[in-house]
Amino acid sequence: MPTGTISSSEDMVGVAVVNYQVPVVNNKDEVLANCFRIADFVDGVKRGYPGLDLIIFPEYSTQGFHLTKWRELSTTVPGPETEIFSEACRRNNVWGVFSITGELNLQGNPWDTFLLINNKGEIVLNYHKINPWVPMEPWYPGDRTTVVEGPKGIKIGAMICYDANIPELSRDLALKGAELIVLIQGYMNPAREQQRIVTQVRAWENLVYLANANLAGRDKTYSYFGHSSIVDYDGTIIVECDGTPDQVTYALLSVSSIRDSRKNWTAENHLFNLNHRGYSIETLKGGLGACPYDYIQEWSSNSKSFMKKTESITKFKTAEKRVLARTKIR
Rank of each mutant, 00 (worst) to 15 (best):
2 P>C: 11
3 T>N: 04
3 T>L: 08
8 S>N: 07
10 E>T: 15
14 G>E: 00
17 V>K: 04
22 V>I: 14
32 L>C: 03
35 C>T: 01
39 A>T: 03
42 V>G: 02
45 V>G: 03
46 K>G: 01
60 Y>S: 12
73 L>K: 00
77 V>G: 01
81 E>N: 07
87 E>G: 01
87 E>D: 14
90 R>K: 15
92 N>E: 11
95 W>T: 04
102 G>A: 12
113 T>G: 03
118 N>W: 06
123 I>T: 04
125 L>M: 14
131 N>S: 12
139 W>F: 15
143 D>V: 09
149 E>D: 09
150 G>D: 06
150 G>L: 06
151 P>C: 14
155 K>C: 07
155 K>V: 06
161 C>W: 07
164 A>K: 03
169 L>V: 14
174 A>C: 01
176 K>L: 13
178 A>W: 11
193 E>L: 13
194 Q>L: 11
199 T>D: 05
202 R>N: 09
203 A>N: 04
206 N>L: 10
208 V>L: 09
209 Y>H: 01
212 N>Q: 13
215 L>H: 05
217 G>F: 02
225 F>M: 10
227 H>N: 10
230 I>V: 09
232 D>P: 00
233 Y>M: 13
233 Y>V: 02
234 D>N: 12
235 G>I: 05
236 T>C: 05
240 E>A: 05
244 T>C: 11
245 P>C: 12
249 T>F: 12
252 L>V: 11
262 R>A: 03
265 W>V: 07
270 H>I: 09
271 L>K: 02
271 L>D: 05
271 L>F: 01
278 G>A: 08
279 Y>M: 14
279 Y>G: 10
280 S>P: 07
285 K>S: 15
286 G>F: 04
286 G>I: 08
287 G>C: 09
295 Y>V: 10
299 W>H: 14
303 S>E: 08
303 S>H: 09
304 K>A: 13
306 F>N: 11
308 K>F: 03
312 S>N: 08
317 K>A: 13
318 T>Q: 11
319 A>G: 12
321 K>Y: 14
